[in-house]
Measured scan of single mutants.
Amino acid sequence: NTKMVRFKKGDSVGLRLAGGNDVGIFVAGIQEGTSAEQEGLQEGDQILKVNTQDFRGLVREDAVLYLLEIPKGEMVTILAQSRADVYRDILACGR
């Protein structure tokens, strides 16, 4: 149940992230009207890879910085997997 989305970065990627470290990086929110939303990313999706950067094992701050450093107008390719069950557990633990 993995999906790959590809879009051109606007002012931002339009994602709020949660998790990090051993639990993985998850989409915690999506800005309305962004390409990330239009391409089908959803809250609870685990981000496995962005462009050439493996997101598994990253701390959340490093994942956020990586997304911020992608220049506006560059193509962004995100490999994600729907993991809403794991995401709910992360929220319940306050991570």
Rank of each mutant, 00 (worst) to 15 (best):
T2M: 14
T2I: 15
K3S: 00
M4P: 02
M4T: 13
R6M: 10
K8N: 07
K9S: 01
K9F: 04
D11R: 04
D11P: 00
V13G: 04
V13T: 10
V13D: 10
G14V: 04
G14P: 11
L15T: 07
R16S: 14
R16W: 08
L17K: 00
L17G: 05
L17D: 00
G19Q: 08
G20P: 01
N21K: 15
N21C: 14
D22M: 02
G24L: 02
G24M: 03
G24A: 05
I25Y: 00
V27P: 00
A28M: 09
I30M: 07
I30D: 05
Q31T: 13
Q31Y: 06
S35P: 14
S35H: 10
E37I: 10
Q38R: 13
E39W: 13
G40V: 04
G40D: 08
Q42R: 14
Q42A: 12
E43S: 05
G44D: 05
G44P: 06
G44F: 02
G44T: 01
D45Q: 04
Q46N: 05
I47E: 03
I47S: 04
I47Y: 15
I47K: 01
V50T: 01
V50G: 03
N51G: 06
N51R: 01
T52E: 15
T52D: 15
Q53C: 12
D54N: 05
D54A: 05
D54F: 06
F55W: 08
R56T: 13
G57M: 08
G57V: 06
L58M: 15
V59I: 12
E61I: 02
E61Y: 03
V64G: 06
L65C: 13
L65V: 08
Y66W: 03
L67K: 02
L67N: 07
E69Y: 10
E69S: 15
I70F: 06
I70V: 04
I70Y: 00
K72F: 04
E74Q: 12
M75Y: 10
M75F: 08
V76I: 12
V76M: 02
T77H: 09
T77N: 11
T77S: 09
T77Q: 09
I78K: 07
L79D: 00
A80Y: 15
Q81A: 11
R83Y: 04
A84Y: 14
D85Y: 07
V86E: 13
R88I: 03
D89W: 00
L91H: 11
A92V: 10
G94R: 12
G94P: 12
G94S: 13
R95E: 14
